[in-house]
Computed example of a mutant assay.
Amino acid sequence: MIDSKAHGFTLIEIMITLAIVGIISSIAYPSYVAYVERTRRSECQGVISNFALAMERFFAANSTYAGAANGGANTGTPAVSTFVSKCPLDGSQVYYTLSIQAASASSYTLRATPAGVQAGNGYLEVRSNGQKGWDRDNDGALAADELNWLDR
């Protein structure tokens, strides 16, 4: 005797499964994107902190922070002998570009500006007095409550 009962999934069952997968994906994907952005920002926080250490080494060798940028300038891209100009340090994808915003005999301000897919995420800044900030609202200025690394 031949079994005439078909085996497999009905179209309705497949459509319900696809709908469930779609709903779960629409919830999970934004969380994943936020997580990746946070991870990239955290990595760059470490890199810009190392940049600050490189500025201290520059000061130890030259008794000034001035002239640490390309061509002996006080602002702009860091000189190759001072530090790299991108974050992350390895890989071809650049998520932040590093720059010296200001440098004088006794102080400096370093900035990591978001680039590429990280653009619009607000810059990171480190100052010679130890202040570290993240422009969370991306308004171009660090408010008092943004002078820390915390991802609130």
Rank of each mutant, 00 (worst) to 15 (best):
Y29A: 13
K132C: 01
A73L: 10
Y65L: 07
S4P: 01
A143V: 00
Y35W: 15
G22D: 11
L98M: 11
A52I: 04
V126W: 14
E37P: 01
G8R: 12
G140L: 04
S106V: 15
L150T: 15
N129C: 09
T113L: 10
A68W: 02
Q131L: 10
G91C: 06
D137Q: 01
A141Q: 01
N148V: 00
V126P: 02
G76R: 04
A28Q: 09
G72K: 06
G133P: 00
D139P: 01
A103F: 12
L89I: 13
V36C: 03
V84F: 02
I14L: 15
E13R: 08
R41I: 02
R57G: 03
R152K: 14
T77Y: 04
S107K: 10
V47F: 07
S92T: 14
C87I: 03
A79V: 05
V126Q: 13
A115S: 15
A69M: 07
P30Y: 12
V126E: 11
D135L: 00
Y32A: 07
S26Q: 10
G67N: 05
L150N: 14
Q118F: 10
G8L: 13
L147D: 01
A79N: 09
S106R: 13
E146C: 02
V33L: 13
V36M: 15
D145K: 00
C87D: 07
T75N: 05
A54E: 11
A61T: 08
D90Y: 01
L53M: 09
K132Q: 14
N50S: 13
Y29K: 06
P30T: 09
I20K: 08
R136N: 01
A66Q: 07
D137W: 01
D139R: 01
